[in-house]
Design a protein around this nucleic acid. Structure first.
Lengths: 231, 231
DNA sequence: TATTTAAGTGTATAAATTACATTTATTAAA
DNA sequence: TTTAATAAATGTAATTTATACACTTAAATA
């Protein structure tokens, strides 16, 4: 069995668009680049693919290295291959998007001078990272309407209000509280816990969790998650 | 400016999932592999990325080489990187899906022993190509509901019946003719031509074309294509 | 026990989707 | 020239889904 000896080889990288949700805000985790070119400028967290790992593994490694987190929601998006996208050397990069629950006091590796930015206040980024982020935001908007990923941005137990805020900030519009709750309840994929969050009001609000088992059973049964057109 | 000299490099390939529509049938174009390993088995059309091209250019090149066609609808899907996906040598492959109008007597380069297969009658494929195809079919199903790509599988002028057939075969369900036409007309992105196709009936049926200019204007104006839930 | 705060709840209207059957244009055969 | 055959073209009522909208409840604190 011969090798493909005649063919060109390429540097392959992953770049992570890391989204977090904090109170009312959709945020993105960026790092400050500490080498030339573009030293001191903001960038996505990335890393080169290594010989003995898959792209998913590389993305998980990079993410873990920066945040210490494992089992984060991580999805491959697009592969960027413009000839001049990295001025140092031709590099093809695969973007991944990650959803993180920020409330659990995520610790960030200080080696990277990383910082969370509100989506609307993020600085310009190096290379084609601006494009990657804007593609990822489009995808997030689309995804949240067709997959139950809103929960990934919240702690395991969350209030309806928090979930509504996630949807509002991603969709970029205010939603009606009653309609939102009716719609979510109609999906029938949450478990209401007999436990209240009292941090926001005297009455306290009930907590919910995503019922992944039920969700999967429903999907196997032909159900498709759809969350659209809720004002 | 230093190079990334320490990093591993990889073979990068593109593999094309080429869909065509013929009368009532969604088809896929496969080639017969003529070298080891897996010689004689069916495969997607693919090729290695070259030093001086982007992935999109590589996919277009591969597609053009096989079909002679240019300006085909082509979209990047996913990048596959499992360590053992190609037994010859580690290769990372980016899948592309293409939509082709088959009725215009597409000529296929005979060097590749290529053949059109009905989606339901396609043979097992080499490597992870089965996975690529099934991912592409899911994506096609999803895409046809959210983007005006049904037209890409038809000649420039088409009848409502043909368009309905495209939707039916992709969605895998029968649609009601009146509801289908009402829905499509409500989208208001087709031009009715004063010209009939007489191949299928004595009365003949009017031909339509996709009004791309109008569509783009509507999108710029906030319109989003949605074709869902039509029985 | 009164006040304050956010949580929790229901319904009527509007819009979208679905189910469904007859008429029309044309050609070929009688 | 009339008739028969074929697929194209067309509209509406019933149902489902989405939207707009405001008051009551639970609990803590003053």
């Amino acid at each position: 069995m011969e090798n493909y000896t005649e063919q060109d080889k390429f540097l392959l990288a992953v770049d992570c668009i890391i989204f977090g949700f904090d109170k009312q805000d959709l945020k993105i985790l960026l790092i400050k680049r500490d080498f030339e070119p573009e030293k001191g400028n903001w960038s996505l967290m990335g890393g080169f693919l290594k010989k003995n790992e898959s792209l998913d593994e590389a993305a998980n490694r990079v993410l873990h290295h920066l945040t210490g987190l494992e089992n984060v929601y991580l999805e491959q998006l697009q592969t960027y291959s413009a000839l001049d996208r990295d001025p140092v050397e031709r590099t093809v990069s695969v973007s991944y998007f990650a959803l993180i629950n920020l409330t659990e006091k995520t610790k960030i590796n200080e080696d990277f001078s990383a910082k969370w930015f509100s989506i609307n206040e993020a600085p310009p980024l190096i290379f084609d990272h601006n494009q990657m982020v804007s593609d990822a935001i489009s995808w997030l908007r689309h995804s949240v309407a067709t997959k139950p990923i809103g929960f990934e941005l919240l702690p395991e137990k969350f209030t309806m209000k928090q979930l509504q805020s996630v949807y509002e900030v991603i969709l970029g519009e205010e939603l009606d509280k009653r309609n939102f709750i009716n719609k979510i309840n109609a999906l029938d994929i949450l478990i209401k816990i007999e436990e209240k969050d009292r941090s926001s009001s005297r009455k306290g609000s009930f907590l919910y969790t995503f019922d992944e088992v039920k969700y999967k059973a429903k999907v196997a049964d032909g159900f498709t998650f759809k969350f659209m057109g809720v004002k």
